[in-house]
């Protein structure tokens, strides 16, 4: 597993869905190990996150990861950047746990012995060994999210983007996923409404109406966010 960081750069990025602008002239460089993206619903934070691995391409401007343009080198970018979605049910592709972990590695062209070794490592890491041959739909919400993270981690990306990874989870599973994110060697970029999750992060970027409202350490950035949301 690599711990190198791929520099991510947004250069004057704008995007709209129909007539509604969701990102307005964003220029940022992301280098820190733990970065949180917060903001109200519809503020543009998920669109921003999806642009990091080329799931969404900008209308204007340029997004690069390790020097690769997401618009031109999408497949190569996705080898650097993994993505964990809010709902693990939409991310788990194969019906059996071990098969789903293997899916991404097969896409990378890894050989069977390596796939089996890495699958076993990942199952042990997240306490899923006993579920190796179980149907994924029978796992709990937290286990599904850990399976989704496993499926991304085995592809050894340098950066993992999490789109509201704890939104659908109860407190215990939320804590398990938070611990899993904290223990990562990789750069983690987390879109979230869960402010407890990001208290120890290096940087918090607050989005409001497609613009960056604050970009700072957690305390001042979140104070600015709360002030904007509540007027206090």
């Amino acid at each position: 597993m690599t711990s190198a960081t791929a520099a991510i750069s947004f250069d004057r990025v704008s995007h709209a869905f129909g007539d509604k602008p969701v990102l307005r002239d964003i220029s940022l460089t992301l280098k820190e190990k733990r970065i949180a993206i917060v903001g109200a619903n519809g503020s543009g934070k998920s669109t921003f996150a999806r642009m990091i691995n080329g799931l969404q391409l900008p209308d204007q401007g340029r997004v690069t990861v390790a020097g690769l343009d997401t618009a031109k080198d999408g497949k190569a970018v996705r080898q650097h950047v993994g993505f964990v979605f809010q709902n693990p049910d939409n991310q788990i592709v194969f019906p059996i746990v071990e098969e789903d972990i293997a899916f991404g590695m097969k896409n990378l062209g890894l050989k069977k012995p390596e796939i089996e070794t890495k699958t076993a490592e990942m199952l042990a890491r997240y306490g899923l060994e006993g579920h190796r041959t179980h149907p994924a739909h029978l796992l709990s919400g937290g286990q599904k999210q850990l399976l989704a993270i496993s499926g991304v981690l085995v592809m050894a990306p340098e950066v993992i983007v999490f789109d509201e990874p704890t939104t659908l989870l109860d407190l215990r599973n939320k804590m398990r996923v938070a611990e899993a994110i904290e223990a990562l060697d990789q750069t983690a970029i987390v879109v979230t409404h869960d402010l407890d999750l990001i208290a120890g992060f290096d940087r918090v970027i607050v989005f409001d109406d497609g613009r960056v409202l604050a970009d700072d350490a957690p305390s001042p950035a979140l104070a600015r966010y709360v002030e904007a949301m509540t007027g206090v």
């Binding site: 999806r50 691995n53 799931l55 497949k75 996705r78 080898q79 993994g82 993505f83 979605f85 709902n87 049910d89 939409n90 991310q91 592709v93 899916f103 991404g104 896409n107 990378l108 062209g109 499926g151 991304v152 592809m155």
Partner: peptide
């Protein structure tokens, strides 16, 4: 809606049907 999300997830996990 789910089918859109699944298509994104498959793409994000490096699926290449032409490999």
């Amino acid at each position: 809606r789910m089918s859109d999300a699944i298509a994104d997830a498959i793409e994000a996990r490096g699926y290449n049907p032409d490999r």
